[in-house]
Design a protein around this nucleic acid. Structure first.
Lengths: 224, 224
DNA sequence: GAACTTATGTGACGCACGACACACTCCCAT
DNA sequence: ATGGGAGTGTGTCGTGCGTCACATAAGTTC
């Protein structure tokens, strides 16, 4: 498969581009470049101009933020097939977090300039994109309120399920960071994990969580 | 002032259209219609197609939702100069709430079809709009989390300040509805209002709140 | 391997806020 | 005028979760 075709597949998997026509998708993906990163290399930092959209071809990118006290907190992991910076490429605002390669990686890069030119030449796509952005706005307003109002076990289960998508059943994260993810105290996270461990849903190790019973976890996440 | 010019002023006041050029604004507002509503008349209902954007020329529109138990809860009030349905007109999704005229009203109406045609002819405006929508997405993600995590007094003060924009210092709303607005129990709302009453910040009447000290209230809202 | 550092486990306590229960008051309809 | 239904004011209680305070264990550095 050609590089472009590979990128088109990744774009297609993202809700924001999922409904674009095959021809438009093809033209869009023909604008992409690729970029190599060695392990630990910095892709961008907080405050950089948001001048590109990235897709992960191989490797892993960590989205992290520097806490005021100097410690670093990981906010997200992007693996092969993941797309990030969709919003930044459209509005050109500064990056709000840092991105570094967790391992040697290869990225697809779609530059803001190229993308905007494409949109001006394809007003139908622009209008379609506007609709998709609006849906995202709706989706956000619905989800956000709902999810913050959920009790901690639900929020925690949801986050663990999301992490399992990136890591598989062996999630590599500290309970402290998990607490930041779900907006809870580390101790509360630990207590909830302990009750789940006693139920055989998971096992705990230093810096790692082993998920044994995803069905039960997703049931908690659904909150029914 | 002509009807179109009046509408242009309203559009300009909304962040979503604030940065459009005068010429584009003029062409956009020339597409508008007007609509009269008598007091109590229904503008649209939940589930209707979102096929237009509205601006209030005079009167008041209540955005409300029917609770499962049949009671009606007011979510928002739109007064002269307010714009609503910006997102619906762009993505065409169904209305998620009802809108009825609280008093005899006159509205500016911009139909989805006309707006989309305009956008396709003006790709630069479409791209600009995309940027604005993205900023809104960012703004939403930042605000939402923050605001739900705030303690009740802060959320309540913010909502009261917002309502004061529509009502002036005599806010006409039940404590029950206020509770729904800020996601809190009616009793908790009452208790907080009582302590503020004792501090002379406001006074309470049946179905009404009289705001006496907006500076103090905004200070609470800022949470500093 | 001794001293540190980082991650984890657990108890005690406090606070904010929701849930329930009831009293009171105003307005409206018959 | 009288009964009923909103809207309001307050007390009590339970609970989820944050905070503080330590203890333990697992790495890391010399």
């Amino acid at each position: 498969m050609s590089k472009q075709a590979e990128f088109a597949v990744i774009l297609k998997m993202n809700p924001m581009f999922a409904d674009l026509g095959a021809d438009q998708l093809q033209r869009l993906s023909s604008l992409c470049h690729t970029q190599q990163l060695s392990s630990g290399e910095v892709l961008f930092q907080k405050g950089d101009a948001g001048d590109a959209l990235f897709g992960v071809r191989r490797g892993q990118i960590r989205i992290e933020t520097g806490a005021p006290d100097g410690s670093r907190l990981t906010l997200n992991f992007m693996g092969p097939g993941d797309l990030f910076g969709e919003v930044a490429v459209l509005d050109g605002q500064d990056r709000t977090a840092d991105a570094t390669a967790g391992e040697a990686s290869e990225l697809f890069v779609l530059r803001r300039e190229d993308f905007l030119t494409f949109l001006e030449r394809e007003p139908k796509v622009a209008v379609r994109l506007i609709e998709l952005l609006c849906q995202r706005i709706r989706w956000q307003s619905e989800r956000m309120e709902e999810s913050v109002l959920q009790p901690l076990p639900v929020r925690l289960a949801r986050r663990l399920c999301a992490l399992a998508e990136d890591f598989g059943s062996e999630v590599h994260i500290s309970q402290e960071q998990l607490g930041v993810f779900v907006g809870a105290a580390r101790e509360s996270v630990n207590r909830q994990l302990q009750t789940w461990r006693k139920d055989g849903i998971l096992d705990l190790q230093r810096g790692r969580i082993l998920l044994h019973n995803m069905p039960k976890l997703t049931a908690v996440a659904r909150n029914d």
